[in-house]
Design a protein around this nucleic acid. Structure first.
Lengths: 254, 254
DNA sequence: CGAGGACTTGAGCCAGTTCAACTCATGTGG
DNA sequence: CCACATGAGTTGAACTGGCTCAAGTCCTCG
C-alpha cells in the first residue's frame, strides 16, 4: 500500500508554516536542514504507512488526518495502541523494524523524513535528539495511562476518559474554541472500540446511555456536546486536575 | 518510606562488577564518572522508591530484587505497568515528577544516580543519552505489547505469555540454565494479578488448570516446570518466533 | 500456640461479549 | 432515477469469562 502514497517535497518556508511538532522550538539551522529532507506524503483512509514487522524507512509527523498504531495477534484480534493526531510524531528512531502497524484512520497528510538522514542530524543538532527523547517519554506516559485504563476501568469510564482527553487536546491546540463543549471524535466506532479495548456495540450502548442521562448530547455519531463536564469527570474516575484546561505539559493521545 | 533506604557509595571497580545495564557498553571515561556518582540503596519489600506524582530526584538500575511500577486510580484500583528486574533501568530523565509509583516488590538493591547529575553527563557522553533513549524505546515496545495483552487476551493466555517472557529473560541472562525448563515467578500472586490485570483467584484457577492438563508442573507457588513448551506457546497466542531463545534484541519486561 | 498472610477452591452473579436483526446513509450501475 | 449492495451505527436477547464473596488450607513468625 505504501507505494500508493503521493510524495512531494516542500520548501523551507512552508515547513515552518505547517504547524509541525518536530520543527517547532528548534534552531533555525536545524529547521532548514529538516525542510530540505522533508517529503509530504498523502494517504487515503485505510492505507498502511508502516507495516507491523516491516522496515521503518522514514519517520515524521502528522500534518492532517489521523493515524492509528495497532498490533495484531496471529488469530486476528487487534488493538489500537495509539492514535496520532496532527502535530504528533510517528515512526521510531534507531529501530529498523516496527513493532506496530501504522495506518491512516482517515485520509491523512504526513511530513516525512528518511529515517537514516533524520538520525544523522542528531550529531549536529542535539536539541533534535532531545526533542525525540521527550516525545518518546510522553508516549510512554500515555501508554502507561492507557494500560491502567484498559486493565481496571469499565467501558463507560473508558469512553468518558477518551472524550475528556479529546477535549483537552482540542483546548490545547486552539484557544479560540467554544469553551470546549463540542467534541469531535476523529475516528469511526470501529477504531474507537479497538482503541478502548471493547466492541462497537458496547460503545454504542454506553454513549446512548450517557446521552439519556443528559451528560452529553449526540449531535451526530462522531460529534458530541458535553452538557455536564463535572459528571463526565466523575464517570471517568479521574481527578479533575488531571484534565485541567491547558495543563503544564500537554500529553499526547497515543 | 524513602528515608528508610540504606545508602552507600561504591568504588569505580565495584560498579563495573555489578552487572549494571547503564555501565555496560559505554566508554570507560563515562563509566568512571558514573561510578563516582553511584550510590547503592537497599529497600525492604513494600517500600516506596519513587512516589506517584512525587519528585524524581534520582534514577538508576536494579542490582537485585524486583521493583514494580504501578498506577493507582483515585478510588484505589491499581495496575502494575511494569516489573523491573536486575539490570533494568528505573526513573525518568528530564521529568521532574513521576507518572508511576515505583516500589520494591521484594527486598531490593539499587544503583542510583542523582537525576540532575546523571542528565548533566549527557553533554560529555553522548552514548549515555543514546543508551537511555534505546532503553526508553524498549520500554515503550513492552508497554504496547502489554496493552494488546490486557485488551484482547484471556487470563490463561496472559499467564502463558508471562511465563514465556520470564523464560526468555532467564535464558538471556544466564546461558548455563537448564534448558529453561524451570521458571521462577519473582513476585507474589497479588503482584502477578495486578500486572496481568486480573485477580489472584483467577490466576490460581488458570495455573491449577494448566497443571492439571500437564502443560506445567507446580513445584511451589512461585516455581513451575514447563513440561510442554509448545502447548504453552499455543495457549499464549503468540508466534513461536516471538519467544525464540536469546533473540536479537532482548526486550525488557516492563 | 495463635495471628496473619499467601494461596486455593467453591458458588453465584454481572458486565460485556456474541449473534442477529434492524435503520440509515452512501454509492454504483443499469 | 430507482434498485440494490455496502458499510456504519443502533438495539435486542442470550450467554459466559472472570469477578466477588466466602470458606477453607498451609506456612511463617512472634
Amino acid at each position: 500500500m505504501e507505494a500508493s502514497a503521493t510524495v512531494a517535497s516542500i520548501g523551507a518556508a512552508r515547513c515552518a508554516s505547517l504547524h509541525c511538532a518536530i520543527c517547532a522550538d528548534i534552531s533555525s539551522a536545524a529547521r532548514q536542514e529538516l525542510a530540505r529532507l522533508a517529503r509530504i506524503r498523502t494517504y487515503k483512509a485505510g492505507e498502511t504507512v508502516l507495516a507491523e514487522s516491516g522496515q521503518i524507512s522514514f519517520v515524521g509527523n502528522v500534518v492532517s488526518g489521523v493515524l492509528r498504531m495497532q498490533k495484531t495477534l496471529h488469530d486476528g484480534r487487534q488493538q489500537i495502541v495509539g492514535l496520532l493526531l496532527p502535530s504528533d510524531m510517528f515512526g521510531r528512531v534507531f529501530a529498523s523494524v516496527s513493532n506496530v502497524a501504522i495506518e491512516a484512520a482517515t485520509d491523512a497528510t504526513l511530513c516525512c523524513y528518511n529515517r537514516a538522514s533524520f538520525e544523522a542530524l542528531f550529531d549536529r543538532f542535539r536539541d533534535l535528539e532531545h526533542k525525540v527523547l521527550i516525545s518518546m517519554s510522553e508516549e510512554l506516559d500515555a501508554a502507561q495511562d492507557w494500560m491502567l485504563l484498559l486493565a481496571t476501568q469499565t467501558v463507560m469510564e473508558r469512553i468518558a476518559t477518551f472524550l475528556l482527553i479529546l477535549t483537552r487536546k482540542k483546548l490545547a491546540s486552539d484557544r479560540r474554541s467554544s469553551g470546549g463543549r463540542i467534541v469531535v471524535v476523529p475516528v469511526a466506532r470501529k477504531d474507537m472500540a479497538a482503541y478502548l479495548g471493547t466492541t462497537v456495540e458496547s460503545i454504542s450502548r454506553s454513549v446512548q446511555d450517557m446521552a439519556r442521562r443528559g451528560v452529553i448530547r449526540i449531535i451526530d455519531a462522531q460529534t458530541f456536546e458535553i452538557r455536564e463536564q463535572r459528571r463526565l469527570l466523575d464517570i471517568s474516575g479521574h481527578d479533575p486536575i488531571e484534565f485541567a484546561p491547558v495543563p503544564r505539559g500537554i500529553r499526547r493521545l497515543g
